[in-house]
Write a protein that binds this DNA or RNA. Sequence first.
RNA 1: GCUCAUAUAGCUCAGCGGUAGAGCACUUGCUUGGUAAGUAAGAGGUCACCGGUUCAAGUCCGGUUAUGAGCUCCA
Length: 647
Amino acid sequence: MSKEITITLPDGSQKQAPVGISGLEIANMIGAGLAKAAVAFSVNGEQRDLSDVVSQDADISIFTIESDEGLEIMRHTVAAQVLARAIKNLYPKAKLAIGPTIENGFYYDFLSDERVSIDDLPKIEKEMEKIVSEKSVITKTIHSKKEAIKSFADAKEDYKVKIIEDSEQEDNFQLYNQGDTGFIDLCRGPHLPSLEKVGAFKLTKIAGAYWKGDSQNEMLSRIYGTAWKNEKDLKKYLTLLEEAEKRDHRKLAKEMDLFHLQEEAPGMVFWHAKGWSIYVALQNYIRNKQIANGYKEINTPLVVDRKLWEASGHWDKYRENMFITEIDEEHANEKRVNALKPMNCPCHVQVYNQGLKSYKDLPVRLAEFGSCHRYEASGTMHGLMRVRGFTQDDGHIFCTEDQIESETADFISLLSEIYTELGFESFDIKLSTRPETRVGSDEVWDKAETALENAIKKLDIPYTVEAGDGAFYGPKLDFVLTDAIGREWQCGTFQADFNLPDRLDAEYIGEDGAKHQPVMMHRAILGSFERFIGILIENYSGKLPLWLAPIQLSILTVTEEANEFAMTLKEKFNAINLRVELDDRNEKIGYKIREHSNAKVPLMAVIGKEEMAAGTVSIRNLRENETNTYSIDEAVELLSNDSSPPN
RNA sequence: GCUCAUAUAGCUCAGCGGUAGAGCACUUGCUUGGUAAGUAAGAGGUCACCGGUUCAAGUCCGGUUAUGAGCUCCA
């Protein structure tokens, strides 16, 4: 029997160690500095507490707070040991639920009779600091299910008891103790060996959350926090949050006079002239791209009889999200129930179904800027990002199963081109495959999933597979883009549909002279214009590229004497379809520059006696804050090139 | 839809039982000023809506609607 084991470190080096060596002892073997900095370790990829022992040959990594793993462990300890105990200290009757880590931080859910509000966070934070300053050592004990349940039942921690009862595990329940404070917590671990290693943290918000995430269950209080290895990182993160707040499209849109929302039409946008100008520019850009890529643009009714929605299946499956309208019997021969379309697909099938289609006609690519209405739950609305009335850059491709692969490839390359031209450098693809309940034969699913996957592989784009996440009617691709501050937005989609062509009797005549059913591909690149414009505003902090900016150039006069010259310039720029505004108010030039800068006008032409005398234009660029002087002809030439959409 | 919070001038906000306030914006003077706020005066409000308590309600209480942060949802 060997008394030694071999441990392999991440760099491949190996060390001999006695059986039963602890994580901390291994760290010490490597170096005293590491042992001091260590917060946890992993055995064959599984995270463990430093006090845990190793009794077999294993791959070992030691984590410090510098690593992502170490940071996450620290956040976990702040939640489960520090925040949880602070809650119990301040609200002894509170019942603790769960306290996991999330991106950049953690939260803790608990039930409390006493109301806890945002104003209580400083108090809780102070209690947390007190707990941390005690520098308690964290130890754990292992218990059977029965013992664990008894411990938490004694502590009146109902949720912990439920968690243990619902667990399939019979023993090895880990209870963490904090020094001799008497505080215990159930946890998978690992935790910091001591609260001494806690970094800088801050509680950020408080909100309600359902127990186990089920809206049937009771609502718990949830406190969110963030934690970092030191004050500097914490500060950096808080600054980033402030930056994100400054980019909020709702705030910028008010400053830029783009749109508003009001009570009488919740979730529906009142576009102002400047916002609509962005919308129109974006729509024309997409329109041209689609026509150049073989799509035919169509337009279908907003209000459609329930019969079509019954046929398509929406009346059954989607009704609670639909706006229903009735025609008064006084005004019609019969009472008719209609719905505002929540999707364009059934209408597109109607267009497809007009006239007999041959296999030679396929693929048929129909596109529509389809205005849709969906009754979203009241709490889900958010500026332009989540609305009840919106317009999709929708399209449906009717094709044969054999054409799915090439249509997928064409679609991805179009989408990629458009995202790049709109200023987004990268996007991810998610492939969602067959769910348990579905329509269509397994052979058809095999074929479609393979076709989608092959297309991505051939284009050599990385993707992830979300097994079982597809819609019941077919597999799909989702496209997630990353914005300037690293946030991800799911926008584009490409979905196969074996269901709707069947329900709505779409068919074509094949080479064999018989009727066949086409596959329908639903696709969108922006998703919704409303939401995408919101994303663009936030991505650019309102400083949109010249071709999208509502006002592209403001002409600012320095003195009244230059007004006439400025007016002739405005006419010259108008003639090349530039969106120009003349500011000849009786104000100082610094004042005008400030105002137009705040309105995010990308270019400003400052016109005074000098320009008048020389017949030149001085153009100041908002993004770079730089000024260049051009002759009038140069300026006209330059701007007529720079202001057109990418192609 | 659920929990909590919020709703006062065009905007951002203060006022929290005793007949409405600031800054910016707006209007009108003065100022003609060269690259991010010149100056003075003036005008501007059913204090979201409905009900209750009170001698008296932006102010306290209840309800409604909308908005915000989360949760749930987003075939």
